[in-house]
Design a protein around this nucleic acid. Structure first.
Lengths: 187, 187
DNA sequence: TAAAAATATGAATATTTATTCATATTTTTA
DNA sequence: TAAAAATATGAATAAATATTCATATTTTTA
């Protein structure tokens, strides 16, 4: 039950952030969206700042593990394909995460400790790319540039799918977009 | 003089948005950053909402013309290269624009009339891509997917340059990144 | 150059929104 | 099942911030 309430609060916050940004977030609206009284929010969180930081922490924690699994034995392009697929599906499934995360990290609410967290996703991707370069499969270009391409593309494409295609994602889109991506970075 | 004041206000707003997001924007801080009294802001703008909408309108107006010039007679890949270069330079030069624009469009401040404005950049890019496809130079893939790759990459890369490389952009980076991009989309 | 107009100031006020708290309801304990 | 503990409510209060306005300064006009 407690978890359910927390989730209702988090979902409401995420939903409203997508609608009005962090700038438009009001405790009263979060409560209404989560179908509870404003005061109830303060049973679960000391204040707005802590609520937002808790959501941020949760989103960050969730984002890494789903990806960093036991795929390291596979070929580089297969590893990348799997990551691509998971990332795209996750982002389309919950595009609100991006909006919240991007806005939150530069908002006045973020705490010092949360500033230090990083998704780990980038680092993981970097390791795969470096391995790929050493195996002569990936272009010998600055990894950060490759990462920018991959992450920029997946974010931008997922946003397009959500905004203009109702979030409809099929295998063909996944494969075609990955193929574009792979074409760009492969040697 | 009046223009100078307006620019000080706009620059201060842009600067602060990069620092604390639209969520953290305060009229008093904008005034301080622009070295003027809070009340002065209200001589130039009716209120905060109008100030932000005016800035948005200005940024939107500025963003298209710089790009849409007389390059339509050139080969597709040259056109794209020129656009890539201009976009990257502009974004690196003023990464704050992205932050402001992205946050503003979903903030509670945006006016109905401003909602209808579009940069035109996407449409222009789309036209070039379709032409490229008809000339058999560009992969026969959904244009929106190609656009997502190009725009996602350029944004993500410029953000990386600004955050991790102090905004240092040289010809090599421009050429290398464009080459990645072109490799991805060319037939 | 002196009066009028325009612009600037920032403390005072109004508004918005976060937070508290007395009271009510639900859940747990024994 | 009755008392105690935990949780929920939302109107009342506090805090933050937008906006105004009486006053001061600067610029324009004639």
């Amino acid at each position: 039950m407690k978890d359910d309430k927390l989730n209702r609060i988090f979902n409401a916050t995420l939903y409203l952030t997508g609608k009005v940004g962090i700038a438009g977030l009001k405790m009263s609206n979060i409560a209404k969206e989560a179908s509870m009284a404003t005061g109830t929010l303060y049973i679960y969180f000391k204040n707005k700042e802590e609520l937002l930081n808790a959501l941020y922490f949760k989103l960050q924690k969730e984002s890494a593990p789903a990806i960093i699994n036991d795929i390291s034995h596979l070929a580089i392009n297969i590893q990348l394909y799997k990551m691509w697929k998971i990332a795209l599906e996750r982002l389309v499934d919950n595009n609100l995460r991006i909006i919240f995360l991007e806005q939150f990290v530069i908002s006045p609410y973020i705490s010092e400790s949360n500033k230090e967290i990083d998704t780990g996703f980038k680092n993981y991707l970097k390791r795969i790319l470096e391995q790929g370069k050493s195996e002569n499969l990936i272009k010998d270009v600055d990894s950060d540039m490759l990462i920018a391409l991959i992450i920029g593309f997946v974010r931008s494409f997922s946003t397009h799918l959500v905004n203009d295609c109702n979030g409809h994602l099929n295998e063909k889109s996944i494969d075609e977009s990955f193929s574009l991506c792979w074409n760009a970075i492969k040697k």
